[in-house]
Design a protein around this nucleic acid. Structure first.
Lengths: 230, 230
DNA sequence: ACAAAAGTGTTTTTTTTACACCCATGA
DNA sequence: TCATGGGTGTAAAAAAAACACTTTTGT
């Protein structure tokens, strides 16, 4: 039985105040003419590394993002997922055995685009935020499918560990509501939203307020320290 | 980079009318003295087989269970998950490279113990239903952990595809309620339960009734045909 | 003084829970 | 006729949804 390669692909979703959900993609050179292809940051797992450790290493090596909370969401094992013509060129350049099957484990994270600024390295010659809604249907391998599975996973049950990673350490309730609205893709009522948030005991109000805004400054909130550390 | 082996492990939960949740385990011979070890049915994925196809093949080859709806729930990749002493003996007997790392994808199913009667084959010399609550803490590899993850996954959101596989094609609402109570491990109110079920549009009442029972016969219900086929 | 976002409570509607008796059958 | 599980509705409580005005700041 010949070997199956194992890789990890990271769905990194970014958010800033422009109301658009973005995904972090890398550009990969696929031939000597410097043609490129967009892909999720991903690579092979090392022989002795835990999957989560691998996910963090790969993400850092391709985009320099570090200290990100990543969560496994699904494993993609279609035997033909790397066999399409569009993908062979890159595989032949970078993989010792480009014809071999690759099963990939999907990890997801949310990050604050202002706090985490990606810098391409390794075989990524660029790392770029792309608006999810404007995404063309031609990512590498089955990455369009992996991306939509990741987003779907996220919407199914909002995960405060993921969210707390995205937000700055102190944030306003409007920022949080904004994020929910983008993730859920629906408008929420401000008063009801605040009632609900007040029931979440890992979110705490601080005494601090926004500064330098041309309106009534909002109180800042934070995720419980213990919660963030686990 | 030396290869990573990929396997699949199946958490098959069984249910009959004795009110106990059971898991299907196989017995594996671990040495020449015929000592054995309990394990979840699982084996290596073939080089060119889809994960779901592999899960079905492996389950069938070890227990002869066929035509089971299986669902992927998590991938377990701790590099030491097969490295414990207790597991080396079996690995040396059956695996070409017993020292190599194995990442395993967990699949889960629910089956009707009366309809699906396991028969051991391949390296399983027995296939046996074991009550989950009475399970000793010494399954092969990290299978205790995989089993509890599977059960937790199931409880988090009841999946009617899994449930419809478990139940006979026609069932009473008491059978269904019984199943919910075992899965959720709590008593449910009969009237409220029926109100809720009536809102699930893939569950349909038939005109048929139970026969040969020493009490008022219950109407039989069924999952929508289209639903079962997808 | 004005523009901009912050903050705050009450009523209505919907959903969920609690609860008890008669019915049809086989033994 | 008795034991067994089947089947049904309503009221109370809890949760969710709808809704508008005043406040604080910078310009």
């Amino acid at each position: 039985m010949s070997p199956i390669n194992l890789s990890i692909d990271c769905v990194i979703l970014g958010f800033d105040n422009d109301q658009k959900l973005k995904v972090l993609l890398i550009k990969k050179i696929i031939n000597e003419k410097n043609d490129y292809q967009y892909a999720l940051p991903g690579d092979l797992v090392k022989i002795d590394e835990d999957l989560l450790t691998g996910a963090k290493r790969i993400l850092k090596s391709l985009t320099s993002l570090d200290n990100i909370y990543l969560k496994q969401f699904y494993t993609f094992g279609n035997p033909n997922r790397t066999k399409e013509k569009k993908d062979q060129s890159w595989l032949r350049l970078y993989r010792k055995k480009p014809e071999e099957r690759v099963v990939t484990v999907g990890y997801i994270a949310l990050v604050n685009m202002e706090e985490y600024v990606p810098q391409a390295s390794s075989f990524a010659f660029e790392a770029e935020w792309v608006e999810v809604n404007k995404l063309s249907q031609d990512l590498a391998f089955d990455h369009n499918h992996i991306l939509s599975s990741g987003i779907e996973y996220l919407r199914e049950q909002i995960d405060h560990k993921l969210i707390s990673n995205l937000l700055p350490s102190k944030f306003t309730l409007s920022q949080l509501q904004n994020l929910y609205e983008i993730l859920l893709d629906e408008k929420l009522d401000k008063r009801n939203f605040r009632k609900n948030i007040s029931k979440i005991d890992v979110i705490k109000k601080t005494n601090e307020k926004q500064e330098g805004v041309a309106h009534k400054p909002a109180f800042l909130y934070t995720y419980d320290k213990v919660f963030k550390e686990n």
